[in-house]
């Protein structure tokens, strides 16, 4: 069973880190559709975090449709392959640091826009 990682020092709420980790693992195929997730107890015990925090993350992931709960059996990953939104979110997340690096290096908004337009044009003409 795959366990997500959390960073207790990051200042980001742990339930959010858990949610992000599951979205990422699902998008990357580290966990497969209909694979069982660790129980609240297992995950809380393994990471030494509050079970209510794990429960909160699972509840929100269920509301978002990434996972589903089977009463008495536990939580399972949904059919993520059909859920492109998840992957798109991951892709955009990966895009941000590059923008940040460019921005802090003093590259202007116009230059970035132009680059983006150029890249997309290249894709269209290929």
């Amino acid at each position: 069973m795959v366990y997500p990682e959390v960073n207790l020092q990051s200042g980001v709420p742990i339930y959010r880190q858990l949610k992000n980790a599951y979205h990422r693992m699902a998008a990357l195929g580290i966990i497969q559709p209909h694979e069982q997730l660790p129980s609240v107890r297992q995950l809380a015990t393994e990471l030494g975090i509050n079970p209510n925090t794990v429960q909160k993350a699972y509840r929100e992931l269920e509301q978002e449709g990434l996972i589903y709960a089977v009463p008495g059996r536990g939580n399972f990953l949904g059919s993520v392959r059909e859920d492109l939104a998840v992957e798109r979110e991951e892709i955009l997340r990966n895009f941000r640091p590059a923008v940040h690096v460019a921005w802090t290096a003093g590259i202007t908004r116009e230059a970035l826009h132009n680059l983006l337009d150029e890249c997309i044009s290249d894709q269209l003409t290929d």
Partner: peptide
């Protein structure tokens, strides 16, 4: 923390 988390669960 791990022990407490388990007992709470």
């Amino acid at each position: 923390k791990r022990v407490l988390a388990r007992q709470v669960s």
